[in-house]
């Protein structure tokens, strides 16, 4: 039994000559909600993508359930990703598949779940995100908020141990942000381990157990939401939060 779901230690990431992430270390325990905040270009998304290895760390270590995943390749890497759900800013639903097929595709393909069982599970997930009536619709018939909720259901269908959210509400019209945040809140309350990149500070404060403030690729501030949002000693954190309010 391991006590940390994710442990990042001394992670550095460079693109060419440019240092994107500098010596990042933090831990996520099972059930914990971690929110990454910071100005755009600070490396938040890159850090998040290092956790499911859509990006590879240049140096340093990322461990998932105690196993170093920073150098994983091939089938072992694919297996790892089955345990980590990811939700993207642009939803990235498969446009040629129905909502139901979007959700059942991976379980059927990877876990050989029989069609009927997969459909049943997908419908239950759709119920959970409030879209049970959209099962046979194609993604482009849905609003952005609805698409993002389907994307969350799709990720959940693989029964992940960790969910990553990469600015899940940044591409949405303002009136649709709430419905997506509500689904995420439900998920958080149900005990899911989550790492979230977001600019929704109200939501972050409400849900987070741990807030990480990233700027210029450095982890400048770190702590509970009350600490970071209201009592930060860090000048950069304070001025960043001030700009937003």
């Amino acid at each position: 039994m391991t006590q940390t779901r994710i442990e990042v230690s001394h992670l550095n990431k460079t693109f060419g000559q440019q240092l994107i992430l500098k010596d990042i270390s933090f831990k996520v325990v099972p059930g914990e909600k971690v929110v990454l905040i910071g100005p755009s270009g600070s490396g938040k998304s890159t850090l998040l993508r290092c956790l499911n290895r859509l990006e590879s760390p240049t140096t340093g270590k990322v461990a998932f359930d105690g196993q170093d995943i920073s150098q994983l390749e091939g089938p072992k890497l694919w297996q790892l990703r089955q345990q980590i759900g990811m939700v993207f800013q642009q939803f990235n639903l498969f446009p040629n598949k129905t909502v139901l097929e979007n959700i059942t595709f991976a379980p059927r393909q990877l876990k050989k779940v029989p069609t009927e069982a997969a459909n049943e599970q997908a419908l239950a997930l759709l119920q959970q995100v409030g879209l049970a009536d959209k099962a046979n619709t194609y993604p482009q018939m849905l609003s952005g908020g609805q698409q993002q909720r389907v994307a969350i259901a799709r990720a959940l269908a693989m029964k992940p141990k960790l969910m990553l959210f990469d600015e899940p509400t940044s591409a949405l019209d303002p009136e649709m942000v709430a419905e997506v945040l509500q689904v995420m809140k439900q998920l958080a309350d149900a005990g899911m381990t989550m790492v979230i990149v977001t600019h929704e500070m109200g939501f972050a404060e409400q849900v987070a157990d741990q807030v990480l403030f990233l700027a210029d690729g450095e982890l400048l501030d770190q702590g509970g939401p009350d600490q970071v949002f209201h009592h930060s000693q860090n000048q950069r954190t304070r001025s960043f939060l001030k700009q937003l309010s």
């Binding site: 499911n52 859509l54 990811m86 993207f88 642009q90 991976a106 393909q109 799709r154 693989m158």
Partner: peptide
């Protein structure tokens, strides 16, 4: 086809090959 489609496939745990043939190529 946008890179997002490939990333969505990979992040679900599909192999690059499956992602290419089942997700990207049909589109």
């Amino acid at each position: 086809i946008s890179v997002g489609q490939t990333e969505a496939g990979l992040s679900l745990g599909l192999s690059p090959k499956t992602t290419l043939y089942q997700i990207v190529l049909p589109q």
